[in-house]
Design a protein around this nucleic acid. Sequence first.
DNA 1: GTCTATAAGAAGATAGAC
DNA 2: GTCTATCTTCTTATAGAC
Lengths: 205, 205
Amino acid sequence: MNTKEKILDEALTLFSEKGYANVFVGDIADRVGIKAPSLYKHYKNKKAIFDAIIDEMNRRFTEQAKALQINGTDAEADAEIYRNLSEDKLLKLGRELFLYYLHDDYTRRFRKMLTIEQFHDKELAKVYSRLYVDDPLSYQGMLLGLMVSAGVLKTDNVDIMTLHFYAPIYYLLTICDREPEREEQSLKMLDEHIRQFDRLYGRES
Amino acid sequence: MNTKEKILDEALTLFSEKGYANVFVGDIADRVGIKAPSLYKHYKNKKAIFDAIIDEMNRRFTEQAKALQINGTDAEADAEIYRNLSEDKLLKLGRELFLYYLHDDYTRRFRKMLTIEQFHDKELAKVYSRLYVDDPLSYQGMLLGLMVSAGVLKTDNVDIMTLHFYAPIYYLLTICDREPEREEQSLKMLDEHIRQFDRLYGRES
DNA sequence: GTCTATAAGAAGATAGAC
DNA sequence: GTCTATCTTCTTATAGAC
């Protein structure tokens, strides 16, 4: 990781803990191991660092979305997978996804930073809603829709079923972001949530 | 409203939009209609204004909690109410609660401020979790528990049922806080959520 | 309690040497 | 690209008159 990248990395760490306004250019420089004025050789000003973080995230998520679409369009193969999805496998899948979002360093820091800055301007509000509302609901809606098609789940309203699946996961994630010591408790609730979801929409009805 | 109260009020408005660090003492004074130095006759410093807001909220919520407990302990009368709760009434109740939390000026501004400041220190994280996790889950858990006792709802895990009821409501609320123009869409989803919740846990099973 | 004037210090950013 | 020195501006807070 070169200096320019290291600046983004350390800035993201600080922004995600204290928020943009509470982080000083000198703080970032300290952590990078240079003096504040040197930082201006890499970025025009403090705001440019913040913008570069947002850009980098947009790049990553677009990339990820593309990768998901490639898998997602192969509906026949996916349907076959979901048809054979036992409760245990669903549980494992949900837990892995949750832990990825919780523990992946970049994802976690970015989510916390955006949580702090979401009211700062309309643009950031949109980014937040796209990443944590619209994209997850549409992607998971597609997956759950496949499971409905495969007869594994039953509903006449996939959108609300998706909300019922995702909202508790999102909620538990925000708890862990705020108080990491509640991770164990949250994981336990996550398991129970998925098990109950499976029972409500799935095999027993 | 005297000057001292007006300072808290305007400060809360600004803090909830920009966050503590982005609000200057002069900004608050401007909105109150005085000059910055006059403000120091009412509060020792900027931090004291913030602390006073937190204290005032603690006062209000403790008061509210007491009032709720008085009703809540009369389980017999409540059970009677919930036994006769039709889907339409549940819908109306949920919608009213949601709109209260969304539109009540004090509640909304405080929630947004705390959202921005929740990672700033452990104390604020705890306040957030108490107000938006532990208290609602325990209060609504009690109400839903009564409905289970009354035979209106069925589950072997009231905690998860409560999570399934509350998490989508919380989630929709955060969407409206961030993008008020999505209120109509969110209210529609709220209705569908409650209706579906009622179907999953209620009469049809 | 409110004002004007101002002190004290913090923070962002630039200049110019190396 | 990194440094030291420095400028400028902004922000909190105080002093003291009314």
